[in-house]
Nucleic acid binder design. Structure first.
Length: 490
RNA sequence: GGUCCUGUGGCCGAGUGGCUAGGCUCAGCUCUGCAAAAGCUGCUACAGCGGUUCGAAUCCGCUCGGGACCUCCA
């Protein structure tokens, strides 16, 4: 009995069976980073969560078009800020062209994604590459009477929109509550209503990033690019839209409104998935609040909060031990625990090549494989999957040590499925060259054979020399009851 | 102030009505030339109070604590 994939849909606030619009194709859009600064660990967690989701959808046999944008238009720090945008400000501070800033941090972002084992998206569109389409969408919204121009800026008319459509469904907000809760109205005098948001902003004279438009020189509003690029590459409607929990409002809410207003499509996105926050000291990591860790700091351990560094895969495993929809608190103690756990699984994975089907025992590997699948099908529940992998690790280690005699079929299933879930689904792999691996496997067999003979002769100095030298090369020897095995130290 | 989420054993973290989550730490044992690893065993928790129920960590109410969003943010 195969389980079916269920996902928690933020829009309906419940788990739903995942049904793509055009199977086996699946369209997934995830809000990417604004490249005005280094990505921090919280950003990394969200992208890693969606990498897991991408991997599982692919593993399920779907052909996924995964679109993740790069926001390279600098947006204003807030509506009241009339002057510089973030990228322009950073460009001035670093004395670089805005596009140099964009390139620098885009490169850094991609490098971090790669190091932490995240696949590249199918399409990685940039906001500046879609100015024409964005202007087009503003026109469409204006044509429907749901936006207005003031002094070279165009604003979305939320009140008018809300007369016929629902605004706030995703974030569970009522317009009147928003009104009463909104703060001072400084710098918002242009808008007819405090709720309205910018589709196009007039560029002040000192604003560097600017483009011509029917309304004069300016730049697109923050929410617009995602509406434009998602619909351009995935069509309208499409299957999955992801992003961090903090983007739910206003960003995603405005995206929906823009798409509905521009196209008339009532439900632009079928499934909204939100990754939860990584916290530090109990508070959300945030660039602007200065409460964050950079991935590089964690690897080197060069940070006031850390005593030592941790490998990218240990950090990825730390993420995988929590559900993507839950907040996760970062502490060195938790990280150290995750590192140990990761090493255990990595060792078990390495032991797979050492065990042989000499017996008839089967601890129930078929049922185990189904539990792994069921865990992932239950809204990508990686912590449950991890627990299952630990169970398999015990069997593998017992078999490697000669404790249980697994059947060749059991070993076959364990090998196939452990690799599937540990490497392909969770993405926990140090990349190694396959052809080299084959050679090393042969060489290690020879070395272990020589060592075994030395040990039979009680030639402990040779035995220990081999062990010590291999250790220096990053390879550990485990002496079992009547055989020895090896694995890479991780 | 408004909306919403959350509080699990020393630590991290699953679990939405009854069945051992899992990992880390700690203690003991087995294996063992030594070391390391591995395996086994033990430590059995659900913020507090009240309610619903044969039965609640899980549902409802209240209290207390933490957090997110309402402003740029993954």
């Amino acid at each position: 009995m195969k389980s079916t994939l269920q996902v928690y849909n933020s829009l309906t606030r419940q788990k739903e069976i995942f049904t793509p619009l055009n199977p086996p194709k699946v369209g997934m859009y995830v809000c990417g980073p604004t490249v005005y600064n280094d990505v921090h660990l919280g950003n990394l967690r969200t992208f890693t969560s969606f990498d897991l989701i991408y991997r599982w959808l692919t593993e399920c046999g779907y052909s996924v078009r995964y679109v993740r944008n790069i926001t390279d238009v600098g947006h204003l720090e807030n509506d009241a800020d009339e002057g510089e945008d973030k990228i322009g400000k950073k460009a001035r501070l670093e004395q670089l062209e805005p596009m140099e800033i964009v390139q620098k941090y885009t490169n850094g972002f991609r490098e971090v994604m790669r190091i932490f084992g995240n696949f590249s998206p199918s399409i990685e569109p940039t906001a500046t590459g879609h100015i024409v389409e964005q202007i087009e969408m503003v026109k469409q919204i204006m044509a429907r009477g749901l936006a207005y121009e003031v002094n070279g800026s165009v604003y979305f008319d939320v009140r008018s929109y809300a007369k016929t459509e629902s605004y706030g469904a995703l974030s569970g907000r009522q317009i009147d509550e928003l009104m009463s809760g909104s703060r001072d109205l400084d710098g918002q005098s242009e808008k007819r209503d405090a709720l309205d948001f910018a589709l196009w902003k007039k560029a002040s004279p000192e604003h560097i990033m600017r483009w011509p438009s029917p309304w004069g020189e300016g730049f697109p509003g923050w929410h617009l690019e995602c509406s434009v690029m998602s619909s351009k590459y995935l069509g309208m409607p499409f299957d999955i839209h992801g992003g961090g929990m903090d983007l739910k409002f206003p960003h995603h809410e405005c995206e929906i409104a823009q798409n509905v207003a521009a196209t008339g499509c009532q439900r632009p996105v079928n499934y909204w998935l939100h990754g939860n926050m990584l916290t530090l000291n109990g508070k959300k990591m945030s660039k602007s609040d200065g409460n964050f860790l950079l991935p590089g700091d964690l690897i080197t351990g060069n940070h006031a909060l850390l005593n030592r560094g941790y490998s990218p895969m240990a950090i990825r495993f730390f993420f995988m031990q929590a559900h993507y929809g839950s907040t996760l608190d970062m502490s060195e103690e938790a990280l150290a625990a995750a590192e140990k756990g990761y090493q255990r699984l990595a060792q078990a994975y390495g032991q797979l090549k050492n065990i042989k089907g000499s017996g008839q025992e089967d601890p129930g590997v078929e049922a185990w494989a189904e539990r792994c699948q069921a865990a992932m099908n239950d809204d990508f529940n990686s912590p449950i999957l991890v627990a299952q992998l630990f169970e398999a690790a015990k069997w593998i280690q017992s078999a490697a040590a000669g404790g249980i005699q697994l059947s060749s079929n059991a070993i076959q299933v364990l090998s196939t499925e452990f690799e599937r879930y540990f490497i392909r689904v969770l993405g926990l792999t140090e990349s190694r060259n396959e052809s080299e691996e084959g050679s090393i496997q042969h060489i290690m067999e020879l070395i272990l054979e020589i060592r075994r003979e030395a040990r039979i002769k009680k030639d402990w100095s040779t035995s220990d020399l081999i062990r010590d030298r291999l250790s220096r090369a990053g390879i550990s020897i485990n002496d079992g009851k009547d055989n020895s095995t090896w694995h890479y130290e991780s």
